[in-house]
Amino acid sequence: MTTADLAVPTTTRFRLRQISVVEWLALVVVALLVVAVIAPGLLTSYDPLAPDPAAILQSPSAAHPFGTDYLGRDLLSRVVHGTVRTMVGSAVAVVIGLGLGTVLGLVAAYFGGLVDAVISRIVDVLLSIPGLLLSMVVVVALGFGALNAAIAVGVSSVAVFTRLMRSETLTVTGLPFVEASHHLGGTRRQVLIRHVFPNSYSAVLSLTALQFGLAILWISSLSFLGYGAPPPEPEWGLLVAEGREYVVSSPWLVVIPGLAITVSVLSISRVSQFVKERVL
């Protein structure tokens, strides 16, 4: 076949096609998230913790765009101020998963043999337990709290990162260009650093973006169940849990923080996809 020749010379790197509406929206959401983390005061002037007995359970209005909760606290302010907790928690979780997973996967692939067998077996076991359940087990061991929930979610995602890093490293190591580099005189260390690691890491980085979204979901699920940040913290999952008592009369207390999670996760994954395709 002549597939080699079908690849017409193109400079894909520089072909920035028009940004679609969905991508614009995702970019705006991510920008808002960044602002909410760095300077929440720019988006809302209410104190997320201050009750207002005069404005209890108000439906969305000009004064309170997202309404108020059972203590009269402004929901917009609580969602905005909750962003930093959710994002930091997810970042902690991803750093733990990515860090440990990368090292373990690389070690398993590089040393092989018994080391690989032991690591792979542990990964198998970890993967046989659903992530949410596993993070609950870790929470039982560590105790409740925002940080512990983040650590639990991070620990639960180590196996996924390890497996991907290991398999990517092994796949890339088996590719002809790695052999070619050895053939041209490259030592193991040179080839590992110059070719194997950069080429296997791009897949791991895409997984990182995916796992960041998952971490947001898992951490908010743990908070929803009451294992994460304690009240009156404005953590998103906790907001939903607090709102559930009033779901019949004031559904926005559940729906708005819930949608905040959905929209953030969707936008982050969309933007990371965009960055991967167009910028890198």
Partner: peptide, 24 residues
């Protein structure tokens, strides 16, 4: 050995050049 110390003597040209070069 995996590492070739005598690249100056003999070189192999692969069948599929695309696969034999680091895409990055």
């Amino acid at each position: 050995d995996v590492v070739n110390h005598h690249g100056g003597d003999l070189q192999l040209v692969y069948q599929n050049p695309l696969a034999a070069m680091d895409p990055r």
